[in-house]
Write a protein that binds this DNA or RNA. Structure first.
Lengths: 103, 103
DNA sequence: CTGTCGTGCAACCAAGGAGTTGCTGATGCC
DNA sequence: GGCATCAGCAACTCCTTGGTTGCACGACAG
């Protein structure tokens, strides 16, 4: 039950956004494999994944000796909700955008 | 011409989000007035406003000896776009999974 | 002109966070 | 069993940053 606070905090770092995008693109990604594609160590990737997990954006699944990560995009909607709420007084078009994104 | 990077960085701080929300609700707000409503000094508010301005989320307008700030919500759309893009990649991943399961 | 109010700039401090290295513990393969 | 991986934990180093105080300058009221 992470709040908007954790979500925005997680998205604030460019490397972490890159990690999130990688997890979104490739299924069942592990920290070691991800570290092989990024210019940082495995431990750094693990920290990013922990932050993303705290924000509820990613879900670990233990498979033998490796842990695979999966995107859980629900908190993204909450963040978009917050932005729409801020923009609501200013421009009602934002609210309509989110409505459409939610499906 | 600020990028998504500055926007997410600006939104990462709770106090700064509070500032942004205040500016969104009450247009033509000044730093001193804002500082009166928050438990921080005027200079801290000014720094937050500077960060928001760098992200293109707010626009200053000099009026005599005071500067009034106005919300410019356009970069919020960019940030929402980024999130929607990540979600879309996730959806296509799901689609591929379903495709494979269908055989 | 003088005092006051609102701003901006600079230096400084404390806390947090990104990234690293080093080690230990499991798990899988020969 | 023995070795190579993958992962988790801890401590440490920098660098960023949110917040502060102090000061100096421009604008308005008396």
């Amino acid at each position: 039950m992470p709040g908007v606070d954790d979500v925005f905090a997680a998205l604030s770092d460019p490397t972490r956004r890159e990690v999130l995008r990688s997890v979104a693109q490739r299924p069942e990604l592990t920290a070691s494999r991800l570290a092989g594609e990024l210019p940082i160590t495995r431990q750094a990737v693990a920290k990013h994944l922990a932050a993303l997990q705290k924000a509820g954006l990613v879900e670990p699944r233990r498979e033998g000796r490796e842990t695979r990560y999966t995107l859980t995009p629900a908190p993204l909607i909450d963040a978009m909700d917050w932005m729409a709420e801020v923009g609501a007084e200013w421009d009602s078009r934002l609210a309509r955008l989110v409505e459409r994104a939610r499906g």
